Simulated assay, not measured.
Amino acid sequence: MEIAKNIYSNKVLKYIIIAFAGSILLTISAKIKIPFYPVPMTMQTFVVILLGITFGYKAGAVAVCLYLIEGISGLPVFSNSPEKGVGISYFMGPTMGYLIGFIFAAVIAGYLKYTKNYIFNFFKILFSISIIYLFGLLWLGTLIGWDKPIFKLGLLPFVYAETLKILLLTLIVNKLKNFRRFI
């Protein structure tokens, strides 16, 4: 019985460490803006998918949820906070759908099986990132109205940057998934 308690407590401790490390990595990825066309690029979507692939769907989702809880609580972890506000007011803004999509994208990226086939891996990662944009566009359309050019505002400016991130993840996915055996 004592051995089972130690194994369980070690596993819980690992998840706590992973969650905090993941939320810190997400915060850093949100704050660094890389000059890119047509809009500056952050690495948030890259890190969300990386967390899912590297740590699996459970730990990846927990890390993203912790990040969101930190932001909703008022910590300036989101991309444009504090200059665009903090806490729940920022969260409920135009990016809420994308932020919620982070959770589902991490789960899907962590759940999918990756092989040595780069083409299949590319499409699996593309599907995972697409979930972020699906939630983002749904919320954006609800918030600003469906009569507005939702795709032009909420998707097209990010296509080039996302393609670059998907290609990079495709190249390293087989290295990343090897970390799961340590969890």
Rank of each mutant, 00 (worst) to 15 (best):
residue 16 I to R: 05
residue 17 I to E: 09
residue 18 I to V: 13
residue 22 G to C: 02
residue 25 L to V: 08
residue 25 L to A: 13
residue 25 L to R: 07
residue 26 L to I: 10
residue 27 T to C: 03
residue 29 S to L: 05
residue 30 A to K: 06
residue 30 A to R: 05
residue 32 I to D: 14
residue 32 I to G: 14
residue 33 K to I: 14
residue 33 K to Q: 15
residue 36 F to G: 06
residue 40 P to W: 13
residue 41 M to K: 12
residue 41 M to C: 14
residue 42 T to G: 14
residue 43 M to L: 15
residue 44 Q to P: 05
residue 44 Q to H: 05
residue 45 T to C: 00
residue 49 I to W: 01
residue 51 L to G: 03
residue 51 L to F: 03
residue 54 T to Q: 07
residue 54 T to E: 03
residue 55 F to S: 14
residue 55 F to P: 13
residue 56 G to Y: 02
residue 56 G to V: 03
residue 58 K to G: 01
residue 59 A to K: 04
residue 60 G to D: 06
residue 60 G to V: 04
residue 61 A to L: 07
residue 62 V to I: 14
residue 63 A to Y: 07
residue 66 L to F: 10
residue 69 I to H: 11
residue 72 I to F: 13
residue 74 G to H: 06
residue 75 L to Q: 07
residue 77 V to N: 12
residue 78 F to L: 08
residue 85 G to A: 09
residue 87 G to I: 02
residue 88 I to Q: 13
residue 90 Y to S: 06
residue 91 F to S: 06
residue 93 G to F: 12
residue 95 T to E: 06
residue 95 T to H: 12
residue 98 Y to D: 01
residue 98 Y to G: 00
residue 99 L to P: 02
residue 100 I to E: 06
residue 100 I to N: 06
residue 101 G to S: 10
residue 103 I to A: 01
residue 103 I to R: 01
residue 105 A to G: 09
residue 105 A to N: 06
residue 105 A to M: 03
residue 106 A to T: 03
residue 106 A to L: 02
residue 107 V to L: 12
residue 108 I to N: 00
residue 109 A to F: 01
residue 109 A to P: 03
residue 113 K to Y: 10
residue 113 K to E: 15
residue 115 T to V: 07
residue 116 K to C: 08
residue 118 Y to I: 13
residue 119 I to F: 15
residue 120 F to R: 13
residue 121 N to I: 09
residue 124 K to E: 04
residue 125 I to M: 09
residue 128 S to R: 04
residue 131 I to C: 00
residue 131 I to A: 00
residue 131 I to L: 01
residue 132 I to T: 07
residue 133 Y to A: 02
residue 133 Y to N: 02
residue 133 Y to K: 04
residue 135 F to T: 11
residue 135 F to I: 10
residue 137 L to S: 05
residue 142 T to Q: 11
residue 143 L to G: 04
residue 143 L to V: 10
residue 146 W to G: 07
residue 150 I to N: 02
residue 152 K to M: 03
residue 153 L to Y: 14
residue 154 G to P: 04
residue 154 G to E: 03
residue 154 G to L: 04
